[in-house]
């Protein structure tokens, strides 16, 4: 699956949308979802929590492993994707769409890559 050009990416394999009214949507990339395998549990920050760019804000469990979720941005969490909490397999099937994880009111971001930069980083 190619990396959508309208998103920005971290080296920890999260993606971030451009802000709308200051709020960006966060998810993990198809590359990350493929590497994890079937995702069975998603732990996300709570609405109202402040997350910090580059720091752990949740975890993703797959059949074989547990991985930390790193926030690509600093700011207040405004919404979490309850659908993905109920059906974590969405992260595998629609990583860039229905499998989004949470929304954040962005104050600052980590160093971000564009789609070409991320694709080059993953060696795809």
């Amino acid at each position: 699956m190619s990396n959508p050009t309208h998103l920005q990416y971290t080296k920890e394999h999260e993606w971030l949308t451009a802000a709308v009214d200051g709020v960006s949507t966060v998810g993990i990339t198809a590359h990350a979802a493929d590497a994890l395998g079937d995702i069975v549990y998603v732990q996300l920050p709570n609405v109202g929590d402040t997350v910090t760019a580059g720091e752990t804000c949740g975890e993703l469990e797959s059949t074989k492993s547990v991985s930390d979720l790193f926030s690509p941005a600093t700011g207040e969490v405004t919404e979490v994707n309850q659908t993905v909490i109920d059906d974590p397999a969405l992260v595998n099937s629609e990583p860039f769409e229905g499998g989004w994880l949470f929304k954040v009111r962005v104050e600052a971001t980590d160093e971000l890559l564009d789609a070409d930069g991320y694709t080059a980083f993953t060696g795809a």
Partner: peptide, 8 residues
């Protein structure tokens, strides 16, 4: 081979 597609 660990998996070909979804292990589930």
């Amino acid at each position: 081979p660990l998996r070909y597609g979804s292990e589930r």
